[in-house]
Design a protein around this nucleic acid. Sequence first.
DNA 1: CAGTGATTTCACAAACTTGTGAAGTTAAGG
DNA 2: CCTTAACTTCACAAGTTTGTGAAATCACTG
Lengths: 168, 168
Amino acid sequence: MTTQGTGTATEGAGGAEAVSRFVERFAAQLVEAGMQRMPARIFAALLASDSGALTSAELGAQLQVSPAAVSGAVRYLTQVNMVTREREPGSRRDRFVVHGNQWYEALTNRDAVLKRWEVALREGVAGLGEDSPAGQRLAETLAFFEFIEGEVASMMERWRVHRAEHFE
Amino acid sequence: MTTQGTGTATEGAGGAEAVSRFVERFAAQLVEAGMQRMPARIFAALLASDSGALTSAELGAQLQVSPAAVSGAVRYLTQVNMVTREREPGSRRDRFVVHGNQWYEALTNRDAVLKRWEVALREGVAGLGEDSPAGQRLAETLAFFEFIEGEVASMMERWRVHRAEHFE
DNA sequence: CAGTGATTTCACAAACTTGTGAAGTTAAGG
DNA sequence: CCTTAACTTCACAAGTTTGTGAAATCACTG
C-alpha cells in the first residue's frame, strides 16, 4: 500500500511524456531481443510505474490497446513469471505487479531455454556419433552450455549479495 | 585443410538422416529463443558438419532453399560473428565456417544487447527522476545488468580454462 | 441469486515476415 | 577482354503474427 489515492500511476514530476518515451524505447530493445511486442510494452510500463503495479484498464489506456491485447500479453508474462497477477480485495479488477527481484530470477530462468538446447545437442551427439568430428563439436557446445548453466546459479547468488549491500 | 576429398560434408556413419534431425530440432530451439529461422537452420547445419564449413551450394542443397535465402541468412550470421566467410583460393565459391570458440564469444557478445538495454534504462532513470520510486526501480534494474555484464567477462575466462583442460 | 463490471475467447482483418525466381553484379580463368 | 560460375539484390506472393471488436464467461456485491 505505498501509493494509493490518486489512481493515476505516473509521477507528478517527469510526467506521462517521459514514461511513454521510456516504455517505447525499452520495449523496442526487448522486442529486438526476441520478445513479443505487447508483452514487452506492458512489462516496460509496469517497470516505469511508481507502484510497480497497474490494472488492466490502466495498461490499456496508457498503451492505447484493447483489453483483449492486454489479456493475452499478461497471460504470457505471468506464465514466464516476470509479473504476478493480484486481485485487490474489495475490487473486482486485477493488478499486475513487477515484484522486485522476481523478474531477474525469471530472466535467469531462461535456463529453461538452455535446458532445451542441451537436450537437442545431446540427441545430436548421439545421432551423429560422439567420435565423429561433428559429434565432437556438438559435445563441446553441449559442455559449454552445461558450464554456463552452473555458473548462472552462482552468479545470481553473488547478485543477491551485491543487491543487499547497495539497495536494502 | 582438415577434411578434403569427398566433397560431401556429412559423415558416413550417422548419415544425412541424423544430421537433418539435429539441424531441424536445434534450429527450432534457436528460433524459439528469438533467432530467425533461416540463420538458425544454416548455423545448425554448419555445427553438424564434420569440417565445420560448408559452401553456399551445399547449404542450399541440404536445407532445400534458394541461393537467395542462403545469401541473406549468411550475411546476418557473419554480421553477428557467429560464422566467418572464407574464400577458398583457386575456387570461386565461398565457404562458411564455424570457428570453434568464436561463436561462444559471439553468443556472449550479446552483451551488445545488454549495453543497449542499459542505455534505455539510463535514459529512463534520467527522464523519470532518480528519486522517484519508478526511477529507483529502473536504477536497480540498470545495476543488475551492469553487474551481469561484469560477471559475463569473468565467466568466459573461467570457461576458457575449463575448455582447455577438457578439450585440448 | 440477480446485476454488473471485469476479463477472456474467438473469428477475422491488417501488417509484417520470409523465401522465391529472375535479373543484375562481380571477378576468376581462359 | 570475353565467358561463365558464384553470389547478391529486388519485387512480389505466400504464410504467419498481431491486435481488434463483439460476444461469452466469470465472480463480486448487494
